[in-house]
Design a protein around this nucleic acid. Structure first.
Lengths: 165, 165
DNA sequence: TATTGTTATACTCTATAACTATA
DNA sequence: TATAGTTATAGAGTATAACAATA
């Protein structure tokens, strides 16, 4: 994709990359700050409750599947779940098949809480996306998927200090 | 934009919104996790150094301007800067005009560190964006700007609990 | 009186290593 | 031996309120 005979092209690519990643950072920070403020829970908690509230997981999710789904480590998910358990939003139950495994499920309190904040979430989304047409939303989702996959695959083990280049 | 006589349309909008915000969350988490691992600094530190390394701010940035530029609170920027000062990457100097104000500048160590990690950052960006054409990158930046502006403007003060609706 | 930056405090999230119980 | 989950610990980021110095 790059054009080795046009240094100006490389410069404009670098410039757009800088802007792009700075904006991704800002969107992450803003999402965290605004959702915590307006909805009342952190974005990690919100994504856990959202994952567990889906119709297809009424019986809960395996701890390890949930960690992978959210993209967080087992240890950190454990910490997040401890706080949600303290607030009686989720609970862990032993899996009947694999006795090592645990299933994470919403408590009735957690489900009620989730239902109660739906109007706020709906409005948060609606107001945030007011300037998007439907097609733009679809394209945006694809871009987000693509860059996430891209970042997961990054391997810099062959990139050393500048003197190596 | 919404169509009040077609509930199926509203459902598909809700579905895409759910997907969209979950993906934004995942991209934020992934950016934080992967950049910390591969580059060696957190995304907040990286954005501070990036902001201060721009040619137009060789004389540093006002503390308050930096906080606004990054979208973080003054108190939290203070904490981030304390860690960067501890590592001798930035320093705060009194402003000559307004004696209340401080300018934040890169130290020589900080500038050298920033220059040294450029190859890694360049490669991180390049590998992450491998599947994007130039035009898609431009469109993606615009989407990110738009949703950030949208989230900043959200006001849920008129949205109560479900019983109010 | 308002603004700039700082301090204090508490909470949340994250990374890493070591551990247990079970497979 | 490998996997699922947990514990322990340290560090980093964030929200809120209160404060001093200067405008």
């Amino acid at each position: 994709m790059s054009n080795p005979i046009d240094p100006a092209y490389d410069q404009s690519v670098s410039a757009i990359h800088n802007r792009l990643f700075f904006r991704m950072f800002q969107v992450g920070v803003t999402l965290e700050r605004r959702s915590t403020k307006e909805i009342g829970i952190t974005s990690v908690q919100w994504s856990v409750l959202g994952a567990l509230s889906r119709p297809k997981v009424v019986e809960g999710m395996l701890f390890s599947d949930l960690a992978e789904y959210l993209g967080v480590s087992r240890q950190n998910l454990d910490a997040v779940l401890k706080r949600l358990e303290r607030d009686d939003q989720v609970k862990r139950v032993a899996d009947t098949v694999d006795r090592r495994a645990k299933r994470v499920v919403l408590t009735p309190t957690g489900r009620e809480f989730w239902n109660n904040i739906q109007p706020k979430i709906y409005e948060f989304y609606r107001q945030s996306m007011e300037e998007f047409r439907f097609d733009d939303k679809v394209a945006f989702v694809h871009y987000l998927n693509r860059v996430r996959d891209g970042m997961e695959k990054v391997d810099l083990s062959k990139v050393g200090s500048p003197s190596d280049l």
